[in-house]
Every structure is written in structure tokens, then in C-alpha cells.
């Protein structure tokens, strides 16, 4: 470096409005109101008009995007707000999907009943099955969530139950983009609100410092169970809806796509921001459709993208975007 070239450094300053609107809402003008409302408004209206503007071929993709976005949200919530890394989004999808299929084909319930019931029942079962590893710290949760989908595939194959390898066919078609979009938005804003409330604070504390939570007279397992239930509700909802879109629930409901894509989307979108991962899903899922001809190569591609983001510790799109939105940057002489 040239010795007499002047040294400069980039300085970042928060916009004043960020401080005023962070927690204590003291807005002073319509301009500030817009500053706050605009990103949310863009997101909501963008999602709502999406089914109207995309070409017919991509219509179905809108639903897929929302399904994956729900899974992604579930992963981000569990991993970055409770500290439970789930490697098996497919577990939730499969459980929800099979439940929806059973309720619909065997009991003959209409989709508007089978989806909610499958969601709740599935989440209940998932939570129950994951319960043994909740009192433990460390890699156990990741291991067990990784194993369940693989195991269920094998059990269904071997015992030839629930339609065996053919899966359960004849599920009523129910493809309503607005249903899933509104669900996604409701969960997105619901979870965002939850993590900032006292219950969410406790969940974050469980991740940060479980001993102190215990010393405060709160059962870690209880709060983790609540969190896993919330996470699996999102996953199972996605699965149940997916079964009705595909008109089918089968072994591929436990496919790896459902496990790996949400993780990749979270990492790309910005871990721990909740909105970022949803945006990540909006980027990766269309890419997924586009790469469908390449078969399993696309899983390789996500895995590599994921690896690159994890290793080089990219902050993700959302964190980057928020920083640009909330801060000035200028070069100052040193």
C-alpha cells in the first residue's frame, strides 16, 4: 500500500428512525411511518398478488414455495431461537402428509377439515416421538430428526402398510394458493411476534443459557416441547397441504429435498431473521423447479451452496439488506 495515500475506513451509522422505532414506537411523521411499514407492505402485497401475475406453468410453484417457506420458517425458529437443529424437515412433511391422506381417503374428510386435523395430530405425534431427546443438549436432536424419516421409509416399505411403496393415492385435490399464502403470512408474523414476547424470550434463553433457566425454576423440557410443537405444526401443515396438492402421499414425502432445502434457504436468507429464510425459499424453490431435469444433482447443488454459505459465514441476504436499510455508510479519513 502506498505510504502517503490517505487511510480511510468505512463508518456505519444507524438511522435515527431505527432507534425510535425499535421497541418504543415514537414516530414523528408519515415519512417515518412509511419507512417502517413499507418493507412489510411490500412483502404482504407481493405475496398476495403473486398467484395473479405468474404464468400458468409456474402456478403450482407458488404453492411449493409457500410449503417450503413454512418448513424453512420451522427450521429457523427451532434452530436459531430454541437451539434445536432439525435435519429432518421431511419427518414433519411425511407425518403431516400421511395423516392428511389417511383422514381424506379412509375417513373421507374434506380437505378443509383434513388439513387442520392432520396438522394438529401430526404435530402431536412428531412432538411425542421427539420427546426423548429434548432433555438433552448437543447433537441428539439433529441425529434423531435425521433418522426418523429414513426409518419411516424403511418401515413402510418393509411392512407394506399405508400403501407401501405406491403410497396413498386418491387424495382430493385442493390447490388454493391463497390458503397457503395466508397461512404462511400468519405464521411468519405470528412467530415474529412470539419470539419477542416473554415466552419467546424464555425460548431464546433456553438456547443461550439453559442452566440459568433451570435455576429460575422453569423446566427446559417443557419449553422445548412447546417450541417443537410449534415447529412441527408448521411442518405438518406444509405436509398436509402438499398431500392435497399432489393428490398423493407416499415415500417421497420423506424425501431429502424437504430436509435440505429449508436449511439451505435459511442459511442463504439470513439465519435467525425469520423473514430472510422465507425469502431464501422464494429464491431456491423456483431454482429447484428449474433444475428438476438434473435429478439428484440439485441436492448436490444445495448442499454445496449451503456449505459455501456456512463455511465462509455469509450473513445471508436479509441481514445484509437490513443493514443497508437501517444504516448509513460513509468513508471517513483516519
Amino acid at each position: 500500500m502506498n505510504a502517503n495515500s490517505e487511510q480511510r475506513r468505512r463508518e456505519r451509522l444507524d438511522r435515527g428512525i431505527k432507534v425510535r422505532s425499535d421497541g418504543i414506537y415514537s414516530l414523528m411523521s408519515y415519512r417515518e411511518l412509511c419507512y417502517l411499514v413499507l418493507p412489510r407492505a411490500v412483502l404482504i402485497t407481493g405475496m398476495l398478488i403473486l398467484p395473479l401475475v405468474v404464468p400458468t406453468y409456474w402456478q403450482k410453484v407458488v404453492s411449493y414455495v409457500c410449503i417450503y417457506a413454512l418448513l424453512t420458517l420451522s427450521f429457523d425458529f427451532l434452530a436459531h431461537f430454541v437451539g434445536l437443529v432439525s435435519l429432518g424437515g421431511a419427518f414433519f412433511v411425511g407425518t403431516g402428509g400421511y395423516f392428511a391422506a389417511i383422514l381424506n381417503t379412509v375417513l373421507g374428510l374434506p380437505p378443509l377439515l383434513s388439513i387442520p386435523i392432520a396438522t394438529i395430530l401430526g404435530a402431536f405425534i412428531c412432538t411425542l416421538l421427539l420427546l426423548p431427546c429434548l432433555p438433552l443438549r448437543g447433537v441428539y436432536f439433529a441425529i434423531v430428526t435425521l433418522m426418523y424419516p429414513l426409518l419411516f421409509t424403511r418401515v413402510i416399505e418393509a411392512l407394506n402398510i399405508l400403501g407401501g411403496t405406491d403410497g396413498m393415492v386418491g387424495v382430493t385435490n385442493f390447490t388454493n394458493h391463497y390458503f397457503i399464502i395466508i397461512m404462511l403470512l400468519a405464521f411468519l408474523f405470528g412467530i415474529r411476534r412470539l419470539v419477542n414476547q416473554d415466552l419467546g424470550l424464555v425460548l431464546r434463553a433456553v438456547k443461550d443459557n439453559d442452566q440459568a433457566v433451570r435455576a429460575s425454576g422453569m423446566s427446559i423440557t417443557y419449553y422445548k416441547t412447546i417450541a417443537v410443537f410449534i415447529g412441527s405444526v408448521m411442518g405438518c401443515l406444509a405436509g398436509a397441504y402438499l398431500a392435497h396438492v399432489f393428490e398423493w402421499a407416499g415415500l417421497s414425502s420423506f424425501a431429502l429435498d424437504f430436509s435440505i432445502l429449508p436449511i439451505a434457504a435459511t442459511v442463504i436468507g439470513g439465519a435467525g431473521t425469520l423473514v430472510g429464510p422465507v425469502l431464501g425459499a422464494f429464491i431456491l424453490v423456483p431454482l429447484n423447479e428449474w433444475l428438476r431435469d438434473f435429478g439428484t444433482l440439485r441436492i448436490v447443488i444445495y448442499a454445496l451452496i449451503l456449505l459455501a454459505f456456512i463455511v465462509f459465514r455469509s450473513e445471508g441476504i436479509m441481514v445484509y439488506g437490513m443493514r443497508k436499510y437501517h444504516q448509513f455508510e460513509k468513508w471517513v479519513k483516519v
Binding site: 448437543g138 435440505i260 448442499a303 454445496l304
Partner: peptide, 22 residues
């Protein structure tokens, strides 16, 4: 970094296995 370790090794494994399959 526990979360990253798990995800990174999982991603490596998947990339290798699915790459072989492809």
C-alpha cells in the same frame, strides 16, 4: 459452532452421496 458443524458435515455427506447417485 455446533449448528454449523452439524449442517456442514451433513451437507458434505449429502453432496457426495447424491453426487454419486447422479
Amino acid at each position: 459452532m455446533a449448528i454449523s458443524e452439524i449442517i456442514a458435515s451433513y451437507a458434505i455427506g449429502l453432496a457426495i452421496l447424491e453426487g454419486l447417485r447422479w
